[in-house]
Every structure is written in structure tokens, then in C-alpha cells.
Write a protein that binds this DNA or RNA. Structure first.
Length: 460
RNA sequence: GCCGCGUUCGUCUAGUGGCCUAGGACGGUUGGUUCUCAACCAACAAAUCAUGGGUUCGACUCCCAUACGCGGUACCA
């Protein structure tokens, strides 16, 4: 069997959701591990929630992460089109097939009637389900030609149990009588998720459906549809949902959820992927830091945990810092995050400060904070500066060779003479030059800043 | 409400009946190094393995109940 996996994002958000990135990662890894193919299909059937440009941004973020699909709306492929709004005829045909076979029926109920029905059911403590009124209608063809609005609902059997096997969780069963006669084709001619996903996964020969656990309760509907059509079923695996620190499903209210946010903050794709990999799964040897290739070698879907993990940005930061420190082309990666990147001094300063900056930032957006004092005088001071010490320092420093060993010697001499602790003198100097109490190693920084500029900052 | 899925340090996890007086990582605390902050090194604290019942010579590991959390219950995905 050829392994084919897919993710099916909806272009209803600003960018790729971190939860989608997580399922994308698992789908990608699983496909590649098995010499299979990884597919992206855009499920844009909800016309009311559509966000302009979302599809492009989702695909861009995926490629930023390096999870490049073998088939997608952009790359095309043997099962094109890969966007559901371009496949409407297909869904309609299959929906009508089901009507003819007696597994689905046309429903002419108005939204108002459905709402009233649900209210009544709720009041009577009944499960809110479609009451089957339109199931008995026989003249539906006539009513359709009369341009009456309708939807198509699947006809779920009243009895029996629908069971499926989940690769991660084992067997899961639902009683049919609790499954609603779900709408599969909407009145605007678009399919609902349930029809779209089943038809496309079958037509595109998806072998493994790896998706979030929010889909578990919908899966019996999909199973029923596979059986109605007489199609073979793929393997199902439901990943645990990523959560907010308060344990609710990861949401933009409580957490940054767009992959673009992490990109803009200077998180590296390697780090983000590595961190995501450690959620609900772990390397056999317990290692925290590993590459996609190492993961691929060791990954088994059966070993994914069922517990929903909390997305902890602190651990991500630690991991990101680790990758930053390991970087070979640090400056190249950091430059886009600096407002000084076009300054003629940038190249020199970036090169000289690299080793000091790397262990001090957890994401690239912090870069400028570390180096800005090289480019501009402090605008404010975190603590008041002792100007007397500064002018004495200035005098002494004017006459020495500008290397950090000499600087250190001079500073320590001054401390001794004036009865101050050396560290206090260092701090005054740091404040005067950088405006801050924390920062890069002082003496090396001064060496890079240069004598003239340093002395001038000891003035004012 | 009903249906489903879960439950090991604050967080991510190891653990598949005896190796567990429960291991690692992040975070925290303390100390070392040191011109600050990081980095680095060392150490410490942190989990009655949700609770209660079974099964077993023996349970974190198997079974059942309860509690709690989460998800679903749309002409959203």
C-alpha cells in the first residue's frame, strides 16, 4: 500500500494555526517515513467564514516550516484540483448518488423550523437531532425543479452501533441512534465537511487520516458514509489537542496561535518543529533536541500519547535559544530582525558581537535590544549615572591603548584609588555607555564601540 | 443534559506486572564562575503515579466505579 497523508486546513484564519502545524508535522513525518506522499487540501466550503488571502498565507507558513507538500493547490498533482470550492460538481454527484441509493434524502426544512425544533427538544431534555420530517418526501425532484431551497441529509440507521479502530486509541463505538441525520450538502451547493472529507479522501486515495481529536465524534458519520458508498476505509489516528495553559483547546484569545507570529518573533522553524515533536511523543532515548530526520527514524504513530499537552512557550524559548547558539549563519538570519541592518557599521558590529549575543537571546526579535547601543547613544538611563566617576574615567581612558586588557587594568586602578568596588565602576561605565544595567560583556563592547565614541558618552 | 476521549513533579515526558524508596527535560531555588545579564558547571526542592474498589504472591502498569478536565452535540471546520 502506498502511504498518502493529508492535512485539510480551512482558510478561515489569519495564518496557519499552530495546531494545524502540529498535525501537519505528524502527517509529514509519517508519510516520509513510509516513502509516502504528503498532501495539502484546502477545505474552503464555509463561505461565511472565508478570510481573504488566508490560503496563500497557510501554504507560505507550511513551506517556511519546511513541511512541503507533494501535492497541493500550488504544486498541483494527479488528483487536482486540491481546493474543495473547485470540486463542487463532484460532491453534488456523490450526494445525489446517495439519495438514489436511499442513504440520503433532500430536506426542505427552513432554518427557522430547525431552530424551533431544537428549542423544543432542549426543553423536553431530548438530544437535539433532526426529526426526520423530510425523509418521507417523495416528490423532491418536482420541488427541486420548482427552485425550492433544500439540503441533502444522510439517512443514519436508527439501530446498531458504528465502531472504528483508532491507531492511537483503539476501538471506539457510537450508538447509531445518537447520530444525527447530518447535512452533507448545503443549500448553497457546497458540501459540509463530512461529505467533502470522505469523498476527497477516497478519491485522493488517502491511506491514513491523522487529525485532531476534535474529530472523534464525527468519525462514525464518516464511517457510515464510507459504507454507504461501498468504499474501503482508511486508517484513522486522532492526535491529542494542543491546549492553553488553562487546559482549554489552544486558542488565539489565550495564546499566540499563528505560525506567522512565531516567525516574526524570530523563532526558528527547526526549533518550533522540534518543540512540537516532543508533545505527546518522545524519542526512545529521551533526547529533547533532535532533527526531523532523527524523528523520522524513530517515529511510530502507535507511540503517540492520548493525553492533550499544554503548549508551553517557555520550553520553546529554551529550545529556540539552543538552536540560535548552534547557528552557523547567525548574522544572515538575525539581520532581517534589525532596524540597523542597512547601517554601514552593521556588518562589522554584527560579526564582532555574534558570540556575545547568541547566548543572550531566546528569539531573534530580541536582537536589536542587545546591539542598539552600538548604533545610537542612550536616550535614557535605567539608573542615574555618577558623572564624577565618568569624567575621571574619561581622563584615564584617553591615554591608553584601546584593548580590553588595558581598559580593565585602568578601571581597576581607578576603583582602588577611589575606594570603590571594581564592579561598581564597571556598572557606572556600562550605564554611561549603554544606558542599561544589563547587556553584553562591557570591555569587549567598548573595544568594538571605539575610543572616540566611548569617551564622548562619558561626557554628557 | 447526552455522547466520546483523557488523568505520572507547575509544564513536557520515561514507565507496557517485580529493575520505581518513580528517571530525564523546561521552569524554580541555592552555590560555583564572573564587570552586569546570559551561557556553562554543581546541587536542591518538586508527583500519596486523580480517588475508591477489585484481579494478582506483587500494580503507575490489568478491570470496574466515582470525581475532575477536555472535545463533540450547526446548512463551522
Amino acid at each position: 500500500m502506498i502511504v498518502r497523508t493529508r492535512i485539510a486546513p480551512s482558510p478561515t484564519g489569519e495564518n496557519l494555526h499552530i495546531g494545524n502545524a502540529y498535525t501537519a508535522l505528524i502527517n509529514y513525518i509519517f508519510a516520509k517515513k513510509n516513502n509516502g506522499r504528503f498532501i495539502v487540501r484546502i477545505e474552503d466550503t464555509d463561505r461565511t467564514r472565508l478570510v481573504e488571502g488566508s490560503q496563500g498565507r497557510i501554504l507560505d507558513s507550511l513551506s517556511w516550516l519546511g513541511l512541503n507538500p507533494d501535492e497541493s493547490p500550488h504544486t498541483g498533482g494527479p488528483y487536482a484540483p486540491y481546493r474543495q470550492s473547485d470540486r463542487l460538481d463532484i460532491y453534488k454527484k456523490y450526494a445525489m448518488d446517495l439519495v438514489e441509493k436511499g442513504h440520503a434524502y433532500c430536506c426542505f426544512c427552513t432554518p427557522e423550523r430547525l431552530r424551533d425544533m431544537r428549542e423544543r427538544q432542549e426543553k423536553n431534555h431530548q438530544p437535539p437531532m433532526y426529526d426526520g420530517t423530510c425523509k418521507k418526501i417523495t416528490n423532491y425532484e418536482l420541488r427541486i425543479t420548482n427552485r425550492e431551497k433544500y439540503v441533502i441529509r444522510m439517512d443514519v440507521p436508527d439501530e446498531g452501533v458504528t465502531t472504528f479502530h483508532d491507531l492511537i486509541r483503539g476501538d471506539i463505538s457510537f450508538e447509531n441512534k445518537l447520530i444525527d441525520d447530518q447535512v452533507i450538502l448545503k443549500s448553497d451547493g457546497y458540501p459540509t465537511y463530512h461529505l467533502g472529507v470522505v469523498v476527497d479522501d477516497h478519491l485522493m486515495e488517502i491511506s491514513h487520516i491523522i487529525r485532531g481529536e476534535e474529530w472523534i465524534s464525527s468519525t462514525p458519520k464518516h464511517i457510515l458514509l464510507y459504507d454507504f458508498f461501498g468504499w474501503p476505509k482508511p486508517v484513522f489516528a486522532h492526535m491529542p489537542l494542543l491546549r492553553n495553559p488553562d487546559k482549554s483547546k489552544l486558542s488565539k484569545r489565550k495564546n499566540p496561535v499563528w505560525v506567522s507570529w512565531y516567525r516574526d518573533q524570530g523563532y526558528l522553524p527547526e526549533a518550533l518543529l522540534n518543540y512540537l515533536s516532543t508533545l505527546a511523543w518522545s524519542m526512545p532515548d529521551g533526547q529533547d533536541i533532535f532533527s526531523l530526520e532523527e524523528m523520522m527514524k524513530n517515529f511510530r504513530l502507535e507511540n503517540v500519547k492520548t493525553t492533550a499537552p499544554i503548549f508551553d512557550i517557555e520550553k520553546l524559548k529554551w529550545m529556540n535559544k539552543h538552536y540560535i547558539m548552534d547557528f552557523d549563519h547567525f548574522i544572515e538570519k538575525a539581520a532581517p530582525f534589525s532596524r540597523f541592518k542597512d547601517d554601514p557599521r552593521f556588518e562589522r558590529i554584527a560579526a564582532k558581537t555574534e558570540e556575545y549575543v547568541k547566548p543572550r537571546i531566546s528569539h531573534l526579535a530580541e536582537y536589536d535590544h542587545m546591539i542598539e547601543f552600538f548604533f545610537e547613544k542612550p536616550k535614557e538611563y535605567e539608573k542615574p549615572v555618577d558623572r564624577e566617576i565618568c569624567s575621571r574615567l574619561k581622563k584615564l581612558l584617553s591615554d591608553i591603548p584601546w584593548i580590553h586588557e588595558e581598559l580593565e587594568k585602568t578601571i581597576r586602578q581607578l576603583a582602588e584609588k577611589s575606594g570603590m568596588k571594581p564592579k561598581d565602576v564597571f556598572m557606572q561605565l556600562r550605564l554611561a555607555v549603554t544606558g542599561k544595567t544589563v547587556g553584553l560583556p562591557l570591555l569587549e563592547s567598548l573595544e568594538i564601540l571605539g575610543k572616540e565614541e566611548t569617551l564622548s558618552r562619558l561626557n554628557s
